[in-house]
Design a protein around this nucleic acid. Sequence first.
DNA 1: CATCGATCATAAGCCAGCCTTATGTGAAGG
DNA 2: CCTTCACATAAGGCTGGCTTATGATCGATG
Lengths: 332, 332
Amino acid sequence: MDASPTETSGLADLDATSLLVLREIAERGSITAAASALGYSQPALSQQVRRAEARAGVALVERTGRGIRLTPAGRVLARHGGAVATALEAARGELADLRGLRSGRVRLMAFPSASPSIVPEFMAEMARRHPGVRVSFVEAEPPEAVAAVREDRADLALTFSYPGDHTDPHRESARGLEVTTIGSDPMHVVLPDTHPLAGGDTVDLAGLSREPWIAGCPRCRGHLLELCDTAGFAPRIAVETDNFVAVEELVASGLGVAVLPALAIESAGKRAGVAVRGTTNGDRRTLHLVTARGGRGVPAVAVAAEALARLVAGRGGTPADPRPGRTIEGDV
Amino acid sequence: MDASPTETSGLADLDATSLLVLREIAERGSITAAASALGYSQPALSQQVRRAEARAGVALVERTGRGIRLTPAGRVLARHGGAVATALEAARGELADLRGLRSGRVRLMAFPSASPSIVPEFMAEMARRHPGVRVSFVEAEPPEAVAAVREDRADLALTFSYPGDHTDPHRESARGLEVTTIGSDPMHVVLPDTHPLAGGDTVDLAGLSREPWIAGCPRCRGHLLELCDTAGFAPRIAVETDNFVAVEELVASGLGVAVLPALAIESAGKRAGVAVRGTTNGDRRTLHLVTARGGRGVPAVAVAAEALARLVAGRGGTPADPRPGRTIEGDV
DNA sequence: CATCGATCATAAGCCAGCCTTATGTGAAGG
DNA sequence: CCTTCACATAAGGCTGGCTTATGATCGATG
């Protein structure tokens, strides 16, 4: 019995637009002015006020002679409309920064042999062209890099795959991620420069069937086995190490031969006593970029991906298809 | 040449709803949950996100396995969505307070003879039933009270008018305001209790045509002249004062007779030696409430108006028509 | 490995909110 | 008194946005 008769529950729902409209009216002093400021016709605003009043259940404006003035309730909405406008403006600004690459962040993961070659160039390029974008880098083998993207510990993964690789991280484990092929990296044979086959431009692996082999990381080892299988033999693996410098050292010492990706060789530096030759088949590994599905919609990630693709292409890797990412559909 | 290819002007327009949607998604962790929280279907939100992305020109969410996660841009919107939600909530709260009369303000202006009678009762009533509403009061003659409402120096004016009053503030000057008649106040003849006509229940003014008269404020004086004119004579005005106590004193001293509104007599208190009688014609003045057009939509003003109408009716003034205010259309 | 459940995307269709143009009304000002 | 200005109202049309229905994908479970 204490409540006034005006007390209904109402408050159907007050929308943010109403606040903005009232704010504009309060600032301009008239509906007409507010309407043109907002790009609407005068009746449009008039109706919006009416609707807002219906929703609020209170008068928001009252007519005064030729114009209007706000009621206390109207002033309340106008006041809070200021906060809404501020929030909108701030959001717009930050969004523009992100879009304009004046801010943003890219967390890159890339395979080890990219660390000394592609990655520094990439980071320099990003720093030069988009100084507002923070770039971080963590070295990781492809499977972990892909997992990191999936778990949002990275935005972009630079990975590689071998043809026919059945533990290929881009097959099963990349489901739901976006994978773009950005080029390839030639596989080179590393052998002592005293080796008879070191004389030619390219080397046929079959000619090395009797040599002891030096294998790398598990997946590299798998690739080696496949290459040799194609060449018609099973390699005798004498040493396993993923240290590229060590591989060359071992080769120079005549303890075996190896197949290494060009990037790995580059990263290890030139080593006296070893010869590096392409394979007769022109074997290559393929380089990929992996992002979350839709991740390319993030401007900083998009430009980072483009920069990496450009760098890889400029390095002589087979230029990939156009840039749009392609989702793994179960079969690569 | 420095700008990235993503840099277009865009930012078509980002609406507040998008911020709220993103906020809800960020909080609930999924589109589906956010949709049901907001009372929409899942595709509705899905489409809203898509539209927001189109407007923003950036991806806002990215798919991750079975669910989604927000991109940096999405998180930006969600964050600012918090501010919008806060503002909305605050506005809703204040609005509810106004509607529920837990807050508000009423600035009342009323004619002098209401000050000691109606107004205190009114203020007590308001304090009792709506303690959250602040009530202020300024005494003013009707013309000034009406002007105050027009100039937003008052929310509510309690005024009176005399029948046929051509300087009636509710005629010309009340254009564009809302005027409600809430009752009337009987006009009483004040004469020495020794006067021959003091014997009857009512007095015929014609019987007082020879008496000296005591007139009040200018408008009251006009009314007096009209009453006497109707009775067929022109009064001889001996004194003019708008001090009611003085009037009774003068009457008691035998210096003249007067016509005063009941409220004025009540406010002056009982005075020995004077008789108060109704007129034969039952003359009355009419009491009005004046607000800005639409002012009755303000809850505090509405209840104040109702309270005043109730008080006047309870006091024996002719109960007015139902409460809805009626706008002056040029002719009262 | 196959099925189920959960989540999001897409498609199609429908409704209504909302805007626009045109016109009316009241008030202020010359 | 007539013009000007601001808001209200009316009528109509369009499109944004919601709903239902269905598809696709991934994770989990047995």
